[in-house]
Computed example of a mutant assay.
Amino acid sequence: MANQKNSPIATFIMGIIFIVSSWMVYSNFSAPMVKESEASENWPTTSGMITYSELSQSMSDGKKMYAANVNYNFTVDEKAYTGDRISLTSNGTSTGSVGKVKETLQTYPVDANVTVYYDPEFPNNAVLEPGADFFIYFVKYGPLVLGLIGVLMILQLVKKIGLLILALFLSTRN
């Protein structure tokens, strides 16, 4: 493969794009999710009961995917609600591991009494497992990695410019 030189202007523009993109993703997507996951740890709780607990199966790119579908009823201020989220990020997620799904379904069998964590402002926003999980950490730190790549691109450009200035300065001294 031929040795290619990157344009300094293109490197600078891409670095800025990476930094701005990471800031936009973090502020508009990541920060609210992280804030909600942290807040959910302090949400009030109420008793609930599992009303539905089934394994669902689907195909994705020719591979079998499995999901735990769990519904539960709970009451807040004498008003009945139905929830279906185990954690803040579990709704609608599937995995190739049937074992993990079966483990979840064993944790939440039909007619089991559960503790439901609910948002006091919007009680229909409820979960059985509050707080952050792996996906929340990925969402939290992923944009920072993107921004770091942008900063490294700009630092590489500054280094090249610095070496060019140093070479020019040394060549004029001779």
Score class of each variant (00 low, 15 high):
1 M>D: 11
2 A>G: 08
3 N>F: 14
6 N>K: 15
7 S>I: 10
7 S>C: 04
14 M>G: 03
17 I>W: 04
22 S>H: 10
22 S>C: 09
23 W>I: 15
25 V>F: 03
27 S>W: 08
32 P>A: 10
32 P>Y: 13
36 E>M: 05
38 E>L: 04
39 A>C: 05
40 S>V: 07
41 E>I: 13
42 N>Q: 13
45 T>K: 03
45 T>A: 03
45 T>N: 02
47 S>R: 06
48 G>F: 01
52 Y>F: 02
53 S>G: 09
54 E>H: 14
55 L>P: 01
60 S>Q: 14
62 G>Y: 00
64 K>R: 06
66 Y>Q: 02
71 N>E: 13
71 N>C: 05
73 N>I: 08
74 F>V: 01
76 V>N: 10
81 Y>F: 12
83 G>N: 09
85 R>L: 02
86 I>R: 15
92 G>A: 04
93 T>Q: 09
94 S>A: 03
96 G>K: 04
99 G>C: 00
100 K>A: 15
101 V>C: 02
101 V>G: 02
103 E>L: 04
103 E>A: 09
103 E>P: 04
105 L>Y: 11
106 Q>A: 11
108 Y>E: 03
109 P>D: 08
112 A>K: 15
113 N>R: 09
113 N>W: 12
113 N>C: 03
114 V>W: 12
116 V>Q: 01
119 D>G: 07
119 D>H: 07
120 P>D: 01
121 E>H: 14
122 F>Q: 06
123 P>D: 06
125 N>Y: 13
128 L>R: 08
129 E>N: 07
135 F>G: 09
138 F>A: 07
139 V>D: 05
143 P>Q: 03
143 P>S: 03
144 L>K: 10
146 L>N: 05
148 L>Q: 02
148 L>R: 04
151 V>F: 00
156 Q>P: 05
156 Q>R: 11
157 L>I: 05
158 V>T: 10
158 V>W: 07
160 K>H: 03
162 G>K: 13
162 G>M: 12
166 L>A: 13
167 A>N: 13
169 F>E: 13
172 T>S: 02
174 N>T: 09
